[in-house]
């Protein structure tokens, strides 16, 4: 009994009809192009396909030079954050059926980070900010067993442990767009994760780092970050909690 792979259940769950979708992708190859430009592609898609599937279809069937990052393809690795119809999303978590397919789908690289090629940006400035908030547990005691933590203490920072460092939030932030020195939402989220961890002893250090000209005070509460987060983290709320902690002088 040789087994066959199950056919796509898309056929039962969603509509089966294949249809043509136009993607307009912002291309840029620094080896060839002086300026980025927009290029159209028509692809056959099913409504339950993802934008990542559309990009793969372009790359594999039409134009192998299209460059983008991707890995896990189900929203957990954070590789494929991009701007889809003007909003920061993960390409692998954006289903075609959730977009208005009567119009073309615009896809471009996330903004505010140096464009490297097509949909790929240089992530180094983003990770530099992340590293600066000391995103690791700082605790002096070295217990025999696990450090104890109540369920409530653990729940306090649960939301911000979900971050996958995809940069969707930071690159949706208008403050970051014009001021690359701003730490950005993602770095603050990762600081939050430790500031409110009952086991950590260096909250004060991180609060001091973020009480900076380029720290939390630059946040204008536009909520772009909360809206962009593919993990549903309440980013703006986390930033506000850090602001309050700075005013209080403790977590």
């Amino acid at each position: 009994m040789a087994t066959t792979a199950p056919e796509a259940p898309a056929q039962e769950v969603g509509a089966v009809q294949a249809f043509t979708v136009t993607l307009i992708v912002r291309r840029f190859d620094p080896e060839k192009d002086a300026e980025p430009y927009w290029q159209d592609f028509d692809v056959e898609m099913y409504s339950t396909d993802r934008v990542l599937d559309a990009l793969h279809k372009i790359k594999w069937d039409q134009d192998g030079t299209l460059a983008f990052r991707r890995s896990c393809a189900h929203g957990i690795c954070g590789s494929d954050a991009m701007r889809i119809n003007g909003r920061n999303r993960l390409a692998c978590k954006t289903l075609i059926k959730d977009l208005d397919i009567t119009k073309p789908i615009y896809v471009e690289a996330i903004k505010g980070l140096p464009l490297e090629k097509d949909l790929i940006v240089d992530m180094e400035p983003f990770f530099e900010s992340y590293r600066q908030v000391q995103p690791f547990l700082i605790a002096s005691s070295k217990p025999e067993k696990e450090r104890l933590q109540t369920i409530e203490q653990r729940a306090r920072f649960d939301d911000t442990t979900k971050c996958i460092l995809c940069a969707a939030c930071t690159s949706s932030c208008p403050v970051f767009w014009t001021d690359g020195q701003y730490f950005g939402p993602a770095a603050i989220v990762n600081a939050h994760r430790f500031i409110f961890d009952s086991r950590d002893e260096a909250a004060q250090v991180r609060l001091d780092i973020l009480n900076d000209k380029e720290g939390v005070w630059r946040c204008r509460t536009t909520f772009n970050c909360s809206e962009a987060c593919p993990r549903g983290i309440e980013v703006t709320k986390a930033i506000a909690e850090v602001k309050q902690a700075i005013l209080r002088g403790r977590p």
Partner: peptide
């Protein structure tokens, strides 16, 4: 000890 937030 490295900081992993296990459920409790």
């Amino acid at each position: 000890n490295m900081g992993l937030p296990f459920n409790r």
